[in-house]
Simulated scan of single mutants.
Amino acid sequence: MDLRLLRYFVAVAEERHFGRAATRLHMTQPPLTRAIQQLEADLGTPLLLRSASGITLTAAGSTLYDEARALLAQADHARARVTAEAGAGSLTIGTLGDSIERAYAGTSLATAFRHRHPGANVRVLEADFTDPTTGLRAGLVDVAVTRAPFDDTGISTRVIRSEPVGVVLRTDDPLAERPLLHLADLDDRTWFQFPDGTDPLWRAYWNGVKPGEPLREGPVVRTVHECIRAVLWNGTLGLAPLGHELGSLGHETPDGLTVVPLADMPPSRVIVAWRTGDANPLVHSFVELAAPADRRRRSPG
């Protein structure tokens, strides 16, 4: 199969819309539509169901989507290996929200990497909270700056830093004036949670329970903005890393919200992760720059 057609198909499958997919691919919609039709003709089966409400995948389309992502990742990896041997190379970095910015406040990982590999092509992809590996397990990225815990089978990790965790509350919440809270103080409250299929260790941690325990019930969220809206509009509770300054949601706590430290919540570990056994020299160089031995020794938690 033509890798170009597979890239087109993956874009349409993820965007669920030909117009948005065409914009993402920097092309117009008619040739994209023709390309998908050609792919369906080549495979002899419909891949997409088109309707006024949008696009859905057929069973065959869902299967192709999984296979296409794996094939494209393998092709990208092969290209990276070859070009790296030729002295340039490419690296795709997955991030979870502002993981890189929070981990390297006051330093420049990008500057150090560019200085060491001036000819390398670097892409940064941001994932939502439903995939703590930020595309690493799916083969979409080469290395990830993300947060533990999650199932790290087949994945190597190094801790960059650890951060205390607090509970996000509306400022008019009766608990918002407390200087410190415990998880037991929040047992009768509604929490946000992540969708079914999300890594169970990750879901349990950010839901304030131990792995294997029943999850606290509440609305399903996927991004920081959805978490914030759930707290502001419905008084839902959620957790957030506090970083250097207690009471910060990333950089600046939104108006109407506050973050109260939790005394009995394990710290959130910012990590660099890569596929165990990956021979891409750019991956190992990035890991060395992201988590040097002296920083790992200083990292609390």
Score class of each variant (00 low, 15 high):
residue 226 E to F: 07
residue 51 S to H: 09
residue 176 A to F: 00
residue 111 T to G: 04
residue 292 P to D: 09
residue 127 A to F: 15
residue 209 V to M: 02
residue 272 V to P: 10
residue 253 T to D: 11
residue 166 G to P: 03
residue 185 D to N: 03
residue 259 V to M: 05
residue 131 D to A: 12
residue 187 D to S: 11
residue 135 G to S: 11
residue 235 G to Q: 09
residue 234 N to E: 15
residue 48 L to R: 11
residue 215 L to M: 09
residue 33 T to V: 15
residue 57 L to W: 02
residue 253 T to L: 14
residue 114 R to F: 04
residue 274 W to Y: 08
residue 166 G to V: 01
residue 77 H to A: 14
residue 205 Y to V: 12
residue 92 T to D: 05
residue 2 D to V: 02
residue 162 S to T: 06
residue 236 T to A: 15
residue 299 S to Q: 15
residue 190 T to Q: 07
residue 281 P to S: 11
residue 243 G to T: 06
residue 40 E to R: 01
residue 4 R to Q: 14
residue 65 Y to R: 13
residue 239 L to C: 13
residue 97 G to I: 06
residue 271 I to E: 10
residue 202 W to M: 09
residue 77 H to I: 10
residue 256 G to K: 07
residue 174 P to D: 00
residue 216 R to I: 02
residue 113 F to D: 11
residue 39 L to P: 00
residue 259 V to N: 01
residue 78 A to I: 03
residue 74 Q to A: 15
residue 206 W to D: 03
residue 284 H to Q: 14
residue 176 A to Y: 00
residue 82 V to N: 10
residue 274 W to F: 04
residue 104 Y to R: 08
residue 108 S to N: 07
residue 179 P to L: 10
residue 81 R to M: 13
residue 135 G to K: 14
residue 46 P to H: 12
residue 32 L to S: 01
residue 80 A to P: 11
residue 227 C to W: 01
residue 284 H to N: 06
residue 220 V to H: 09
residue 86 A to K: 08
residue 290 A to W: 13
residue 271 I to G: 00
residue 93 I to M: 05
residue 165 V to S: 02
residue 294 D to L: 11
residue 62 S to L: 09
residue 46 P to K: 08
residue 249 L to K: 03
residue 201 L to F: 12
residue 30 P to T: 07
residue 234 N to I: 01
residue 169 L to Y: 00
residue 181 L to G: 01
residue 23 T to C: 05
residue 36 I to A: 04
residue 300 P to L: 04
residue 88 A to Y: 04
residue 109 L to D: 14
residue 180 L to W: 03
residue 239 L to I: 08
residue 272 V to M: 05
residue 133 T to K: 07
residue 232 L to T: 08
residue 64 L to K: 14
residue 69 R to F: 05
